[in-house]
Simulated scan of single mutants.
Amino acid sequence: MIKFISSNGKAALAYASKLNWPVFPLHTPNKNHCSCQNPNCQSPGKHPRTKNGLKAATTNLNLIVGWWRKWPNANIGVVTGKESGFIVLDVDPRHGGEDSLKLLINQYGRLPNTIEAITGGDGRHILFKNPGHVKNRTNILPGLDIRGEGGYIVVSPSIHVCGKRYEWELSSRPLEVPLADMPEWLLRLIVEPVQDKPARKPDDYWVKIIQGVGEGERNMSAASLAGYLLGHGIAAPIAYELMLLWNERNDPPESIEVIETTFHSILKRDLKRLKGRRRA
Results as ranks from 00 to 15, higher is better:
I64R: 02
K135Y: 13
P157A: 06
L186I: 01
N30C: 12
E184W: 12
G231T: 04
R147V: 03
S158A: 06
N30P: 00
Q107N: 06
A11G: 07
L61H: 08
N60T: 05
K18T: 08
S84A: 15
E254M: 15
E254G: 09
G53M: 11
K10L: 15
K70E: 14
H95L: 11
G66Y: 01
G216A: 15
R137C: 13
G121T: 14
L103E: 02
G120D: 11
D251S: 10
A239Q: 07
E254W: 11
V155W: 05
S7D: 15
L104N: 11
I64F: 09
D196W: 14
W21C: 04
L229C: 05
L54P: 00
T28K: 02
L54H: 06
T28A: 00
G227I: 03
F86W: 13
A180C: 02
K272I: 15
H47P: 06
I87F: 03
P253N: 10
S7Q: 12
R69M: 04
A236V: 11
A11P: 04
L104E: 13
A280Q: 10
R94F: 05
D90C: 12
S255Y: 13
R137S: 13
N139Q: 14
T58N: 01
T262A: 09
K268C: 14
K208Q: 14
R249L: 14
A235R: 02
Y166I: 06
K3C: 00
G109R: 07
F86L: 00
G45I: 08
I259K: 04
I76R: 00
P25S: 09
E192D: 11
T80E: 00
G216R: 12
G45P: 06
K82F: 06
N106L: 13
D92P: 00
A14I: 07
R277F: 15
Q37A: 04
Y240T: 01
E215A: 14
V155H: 02
N219C: 15
F24W: 02
N62A: 07
G9H: 10
K31V: 04
A12S: 01
G132V: 01
P44N: 10
S100F: 03
E184P: 11
K3H: 04
S255C: 11
N52W: 02
I256E: 12
L189P: 04
N219Y: 01
A226Q: 01
S43E: 03
N247W: 00
I126C: 03
A239D: 10
G120E: 10
W67E: 05
Y152V: 09
F128Q: 13
L101C: 04
I105F: 06
E98A: 06
A117C: 07
L144M: 00
W206V: 08
